[in-house]
Structures are given as C-alpha cells and as structure tokens.
Design a protein around this nucleic acid. Structure first.
Lengths: 240, 240
DNA sequence: CACTCTATCTCGGCT
DNA sequence: AGCCGAGGTAGAGTG
C-alpha cells in the first residue's frame, strides 16, 4: 500500500503509476473537473470528489451523494495519468464503443494505492434461479398436476423460463420474476406465447402463466386482456 | 480530512464517527467479510476491499474488479460503526424494504474521511430527451407531414413518448429509444398502440413507429408481425 | 409511498 | 463482437 497526503502533482502521479504497475486499486481524493464523451457525452464542473481506478480498467468518479458514480468507465479500459499545466490529469479510453473519460485535478488532497486482492465471488440467494429451482422441486406450487418439461426452451421470440404441461395435457409457458412485476413482464410472456402459438400446430391449447410474488394493477389488467394467468410464488419460501 | 494508516480498531472507529458527524465520505481499506440480507441475501468471504460510506446513507463495498460494488446499501440508510470482538464492524440498515448490510473488518489498513462537497450536477447529452427535442424541432425526421401533438400522452398502458398525426390525418404513436433496441421496445410500443386502439373510436387509422438509431433482427421481425414501423433517428445529429 | 420507465445502465451467458 | 435477459438493478418523474 502507498499513501500520500497533500501530494504534489508528481507525487500523486507516482502513486498512480506504481499502483497501476502493481495491480493495485488507486484512489485519488481532490478537486477535479470531469469530461466524458462516448455513448453519450457529459460535463461536470469542479468539485471535491473521489476517483477510483481499478486494475481491470474500470474507473469511477464518486461525489458525496448517490450510490452510483457521477462518471465512470467500464472494465477493459486503458487509463493513463499525466501532468498537464500543473494539473494531474487521468485519462481513460476504450474502443467499441469509442469512449473516453477525462478527469482533471486542480488539487489532489490524498492518494492511496491498495492491494485489494481476495475472494470476490459473492453467493446470492433469492434470485430467479432460486425461484425456478423451487418450482422444479415442487411443481404443485403452480397448480396440481403441473409438469415441467424443459427450462430455457427456445422460441423465435427467445427462451421460455419453464415449459411444461398441465393435468389436461395443455402446453404451459411460465415466465418467472423474483419480485413484483409491471407491464414489461406481461409483454415478455406474451411474446413467448405468441411465438409458440404459431409454432405449435393448431388445436393445441396454450397457457401462459406469469409467476412472481405479485403484480401491479396495470400488469394485472394487461394479463387479463391478453388471456394470460398469474400465480404468486416467491423465490424463497420464507417470503410468504 | 482525516486519515489513518494501519489504525487500531479504536482509531478507525474514530475516523468513521467523526467523519459521519461532519458529513464526510468515509473510506476504509482492509480485510473484511460482508453479509447482506433484505430483498435478497448474500455472503462474501474475507478479502481485501474498500468500503465507502457516504453522508447521504449510501454504502459501497468494492473489490479489485468490476464497475459495480460487490455489496452496497442505497442512500437513506443509517449506518453505525462498532468495535466487536476486536473487529471493526460497520452496520447499515433501512426499512421499506427491510434490509441490512454487515461489514466485519478483520484488519483495517487505511482509513480516510474526506469532505467531498462541490457541484454534483452533471450535464449529459445524447439522451432520449435530446432525441425527443430533435424530433419536435424537425418532425420531418420521422416523415414529411408528421405533426407532433402531445408528449407523454397518457394511455391505459402508460404514457406515449410522442403522439401526433401524419399528413393523411392518421394518429401516429412514437416510441423513442436513444440506442439500438431489441424486442422489449417493440413490445412497449405495441402495448401503447393496443391500448389506444381500444380507446379511439373505430375507423381511426393508428400507426405505431419505433424511433431509434437501429433495431436487432428479432425486433425487426416482431415489428413486422405486429404491423408496426421503424424509423432510424439518433439523439444527436452527429451520430449519423 | 407505489408505479412506470430511462440508463454512458452493468453483468453474465450464449451464439 | 452482438444479442438477450436478469438485477438486491439505481434514479427520476409522477400520482
């Protein structure tokens, strides 16, 4: 780890460059302006901020508010530091799509280069995959007699989460969501049902069921209009 | 600004608490485990990481890779630090939805409290709003004779981006996207068109046009199947 | 507070 | 490299 408080431009640059070389996270605290140009374009006037440069090429500029950075570059970018007109300038670029970020420090108050190695594989539960497994484990959560046949069954409109049959032999398509859903989820299910309707030969009864903890009013009306169904199931049995 | 290198638990706690009091961003570098429980649940084994606690209640835990934090809490949470079994523990909570984050530091290598005040209003161009303004400014970008009437016109299925008439007096609904679109955008437009189709009295011709720089193959086929149209326009005239 | 939709969404998986 | 969908999406705007 390297740190510097109230460094000169050269000292801050040294922290930045030795940090990059060693694969450290480099963090600069100071007053800076930020310019971005690429998929969109943005400009940010001077203020005290925190810049985070990661060894995988990601860059984040954080202000005192918000969970999201005010400016950033994704992993895979190449960044470089330079001293320009007495200012520390950090530039980050990538191609495809072409975009670049320019951070100009009028003043650097503190610089840190830190070796942030260690496990970064977080295990998450309560996901859509958990909901899927729960239903495959106990299909009666949907309805008595429901039989899952395939997961991720392909259709011209995309892959259906769970494809199966009901006790009367009708084809059933499930679209799973881990949380309360709005109109977009209904449309998604509808796309799959429409696509399968064309694919399956006529006469086959086809049901589409949206499976989620709950739906909004508008989504419910939309389901009705499209002749689709809803079944309330949560990713975790504890949430019921 | 306050900084401490290789602080004791008490020293790190002091940086944390005086930082919170003064409305500073507090950053801790060290080896920690992270537990989250709320909308989902997650667990992260020990490793060297960076914790960022903002005065608005946001918390971020960053590893050496990725643009996104491995764990976080949104703004509005209350966080507190404590010394437990010789470890510095940071806990962050909120209600609605109930969720909490627990970060346990086996070791703190560096602590910073920084006053990150300053302008945080970034001006962005190339957004959907820019695309809308561009079309309102020159409706012929859609087609000769197109006349915008209302933006954000409400329908039972949601608000239409631009509602207008073509040169033959037909109702035209535009759905705008700032970048290349897939099937979801087609479904969205279709929802609005279907809803308006019921609302407008019979006999009125109704056209739906998806406006974006480009569409994917699947989206194009879906447009065709739904009897919808596409017009290529970018948010910025320079992108064409 | 809940609903709806945009986003430089990011991220992973697959083709 | 592009397409597609999930996400503890976050954030903004509105009712």
């Amino acid at each position: 780890m390297h740190t510097r408080t109230q460094p000169t431009v050269e000292e801050a640059l040294a922290v930045l460059e030795t940090g990059f070389e060693r694969g450290y996270i480099v963090v600069l605290f100071g007053r800076c302006r930020v310019e971005y140009d690429g998929r969109a374009a943005s400009s940010l006037a001077a203020g005290n901020r925190m810049l985070i440069a990661k060894p995988d090429g990601a860059i984040l500029v954080h202000t005192e508010t918000g969970q999201q950075p005010v400016n950033w570059q994704p992993p895979g970018c190449t960044h470089e530091g330079a001293s320009t007109n007495g200012e520390l300038v950090v530039r980050s670029k990538r191609e495809t799509p072409a975009e670049q970020l320019l951070v100009q420090f009028e003043r650097v108050d503190h610089a840190v280069a830190y070796d942030a190695t260690g496990a970064n594989d977080v295990t998450v539960t309560g996901t859509e995959a958990d909901l899927r497994d729960r239903i495959l484990d106990d299909p009666s959560l949907i309805e008595p007699g429901f039989e899952p046949r395939v997961t991720e069954r392909e259709t011209p409109a995309g892959a259906v989460d769970i494809y199966g049959k009901d006790e009367d032999g009708n084809v059933v398509v499930l679209e799973l969501k881990r949380r309360r859903v709005g109109p977009d989820a209904v449309s998604q299910l509808n796309r799959y049902v429409s696509a399968l309707d064309q694919e399956l030969h006529a006469g086959t009864e086809l049901r589409g069921i949206l499976v989620a903890p709950s739906v909004t009013d508008r989504a419910e009306r939309l389901l009705e209009k499209r002749g689709l169904e809803f079944m309330s199931v949560s990713p975790s049995s504890e949430d019921e």
